[in-house]
């Protein structure tokens, strides 16, 4: 039981990852797919932040008076990495949505099955 409760953030990560992945695979609406993709990417942020957390650790900021003491602090590197990944996620979502706009202009629909129906004609 401790294993489940003690790692609850990892369980949320797995849940969100599978949820996002499911939406990408199962939904036919192109906008919903992008939203699913976004949830899928966001779940990874949670994984990285969880890795960086040290139990009982403080924020990794050097303040006078604390500087020389051996304070326990969370690992800041995963946070920095995830900042980059967030930027990538925003760029992917923006590009994906703008492609959906172009698809809507060209086909008049954003439903996957209707688009493949229109493409099937020679």
């Amino acid at each position: 039981m401790d294993f489940f409760l003690g790692h609850y953030n990892y369980w949320i990560f797995i849940f969100l990852m599978m949820l996002g992945f499911y939406v990408v695979v199962a939904r036919g609406n192109l906008v919903k797919k992008i939203i699913g993709l976004n949830i899928f990417q966001a779940s990874v942020f949670l994984l990285y932040i969880s890795i960086g957390k040290v139990l009982g650790g403080t924020a990794p900021i050097i303040i006078d008076g604390y500087g020389t003491d051996p304070v326990i602090y969370s690992n800041p590197l995963p946070h920095v990495l995830i900042l980059t990944a967030i930027v990538v996620g925003v760029a992917t979502t923006a590009l994906g949505l703008s492609l959906v706009v172009r698809i809507n202009e060209a086909y008049g629909t954003i439903e996957e099955d209707e688009i493949s129906e229109m493409d099937r004609e020679p």
């Binding site: 797919k33 992008i34 992917t92 994906g96 060209a106």
Partner: peptide, 16 residues
């Protein structure tokens, strides 16, 4: 116009 849907498909699979 299939280029746009191809790019979209690649975006989804590439991001995964």
């Amino acid at each position: 116009r299939k280029a746009v849907t191809a790019a979209y498909q690649y975006l989804v699979m590439g991001t995964i």
